[in-house]
Nucleic acid binder design. Structure first.
Lengths: 245, 245
DNA sequence: CGTGCTTTTGAAAATCATCAAGTATAGTGG
DNA sequence: CCACTATACTTGATGATTTTCAAAAGCACG
C-alpha cells in the first residue's frame, strides 16, 4: 500500500515561473492577465515530482492547490485492503485540489516524472478574491470534471471490458488533441502502466491486456509497443465505446 | 426507454416562491440574503414534476438551472441500447444543471412527485455577477459533488455487490440526516424503485434484491417493507461498506 | 377481484477475476 | 558491454460473482 508521506522531491529555483509556464495558456492560470502575472508567480512554487511519488495523500490537511505543468499524474482512492480506483489522470494544465473539506479526498501520484505548481490554499484564496475571473474559471473546471466523472460512472457501472478499453483509448487520443507531441494522427502514448489502466477502468491487469490483444487481433488497434497504440479503425472503436457493438 | 420530451406538468402560481421555499436555507439559494430575495424570486419558476416525468434531457440545449425543493429526482445517462447509469439522486436543496457546455450532459427525472425551481441560465448568470457569494456557493456545490462522484467511482469500480448496497443504505441515512422526516434513528425510506438502486450501483435488480435479502438474513438490516429499511447493525454495515468485511 | 407492476426467488450461463506461468523489457552492477 | 534481476506485460486454465432467463409472490390500482 502506497501510503508514504507526500513530500516534494525538489524545488526549482526560477525567477518567473508563471510567465514561462507550459500550462500558462491552459487551465486556471489562463484567467490571470499578463500584467497580474507577477502576483500569481509570487504564490506559485514549482515542484518536481519523481515517477511513483505521492504528492497528495487522502485524509491529510488540504493546505495546497496544485496545477500540473508537465508529465502525467494519477488521482486515486483506496480501500483498506488495497483495492484501488483511479479517478482520473491529470496532465499539463490540470488543476488539482478542489476538495471542499479541510482534508484531501484522494491521493495523487506521478505516473512519470512530472512538474507541478503548488499554491498555498489560503493565499490563493485571497488572490481569487481579487480576480473574479479566476473563480469563474474554477467553476468551469469543476463543472467539466463533473461531466467527465458522470461519463466515467457510466463506463464503470454499465460498460463491458471491451467498451471500457475502447472508451479509454479514444479519450486518450482526444485528450491529447490540443498539445499532442508531433505524432501521426491516431497514434497515442500511454505513459501509465497496465495496472493503472486497469484501476482506472475497474478491471484487472489481465483483462486489460487480453482485451487489448483482442482489439489488435480484430484490427481495431495496432500496438507498436505496450505504450504506443495506433487507432486503426476509429469508427469501429467509437461504435464499441458508445455501446453500439 | 424513457426519452420523452422534458416539459413541466404544471406551473405553480405563487407570489413569493423563494421566501417560503423549503430549500431556502440549504443549497445555493442560501447565498442570497433576505433583502435580495425578491430579485431571486423574480427569476424562480416553481414547477411540479410528476413521478416518472423527465425534466432534463441529455443533449438538449441547457437553457435552465434547477433546484429541487421537494421530492426526489434521479440523474442518469443512457447508452444507445438502453443501459442506464444513475449518477445521483437529487432531493431538497440540490442544485442541478452545472453542465458547462450549451447542452445538458445527463437526464433528470422525478422519482416521486417533486417540486423544482427553474431558473433561466442567462438571467441567473446576470444575478450571479451581482452576488459573488453565490458563485462561491456554486463552486462549493460543484466541489462537493466532485468528491461524491469520486467516491461513487470507487464503489462502481472496486466494490462488491454487498459493499455497494451497504454503502448505499448508509449514504441514504446520513443523507437524510439534517431534514429527515420524524423517524426512528436508523430507519430509512427508499423512494426509488429497486431498478433505480440497481442502475445507481451498477448492478441488476435481481442482485440488489438478493443482496438485501441476504443482509436481512444476516441481521444487518430489517425490511419493514421494500421501501422502509432499518439499519440493525450499523457497525457491521459500515465495515462492509468500507470494504473491511 | 382481476390486471399490471414491482419485488423476490431459482437455475443456468457468462463475463471477468484469480491463480499460475511464460515472455519481454528495463534498469543495475559486474 | 553484457549478464542478471526485477518488473511489466501477456497468455492460459480454472473459478466465482454477477448476469441472464424464467417464474412465482406481493401490492397497488382500477
Amino acid at each position: 500500500m502506497t501510503t508514504m508521506r507526500a513530500h516534494p522531491l525538489s524545488i526549482l529555483h526560477g525567477a518567473e515561473p508563471c510567465a514561462s509556464c507550459g500550462a500558462r495558456s491552459s487551465g486556471v492560470c489562463a484567467a490571470i492577465e499578463e500584467k497580474d502575472l507577477e502576483r500569481l508567480s509570487a504564490l506559485a512554487v514549482p515542484i518536481l515530482v519523481a515517477a511513483g511519488r505521492t504528492f497528495i495523500t487522502e485524509g491529510e490537511p488540504a493546505e495546497h492547490f496544485f496545477t500540473v505543468t508537465s508529465g502525467t499524474t494519477k488521482l486515486f482512492k483506496l480501500l483498506p485492503d488495497g483495492r484501488r480506483q483511479i479517478t482520473g489522470f491529470a496532465s499539463r494544465g490540470t488543476f488539482l485540489g478542489l476538495a471542499v473539506s479541510s482534508s484531501y479526498a484522494f491521493n495523487a501520484e506521478a505516473v512519470e516524472h512530472s512538474q507541478v505548481c503548488r499554491f498555498s490554499r489560503t493565499r490563493l484564496r485571497r488572490l481569487i478574491e481579487d480576480f473574479p475571473a479566476m473563480e469563474r474559471r474554477l467553476l468551469d473546471v469543476a463543472s467539466n470534471e463533473l461531466v467527465a466523472a458522470q461519463e466515467q460512472m457510466l463506463l464503470l457501472g454499465r460498460k463491458t471490458a471491451r467498451e471500457r478499453v475502447a472508451s479509454f483509448l479514444l479519450a486518450r487520443e482526444s485528450g491529447l488533441a490540443g498539445w499532442a507531441p508531433p505524432q501521426a494522427k491516431g497514434c497515442i502514448l500511454l505513459p501509465m502502466a497496465r495496472t493503472d489502466i486497469a484501476d482506472y477502468l475497474g478491471l484487472t491487469v489481465e483483462t486489460v491486456s487480453r482485451t487489448m490483444t483482442r482489439l489488435r487481433s480484430e484490427r481495431l488497434i495496432e500496438m507498436r509497443s505496450p505504450t504506443e497504440i495506433v487507432l486503426r479503425n476509429r469508427d469501429g472503436l467509437e461504435a464499441l465505446a458508445a455501446g453500439m457493438a
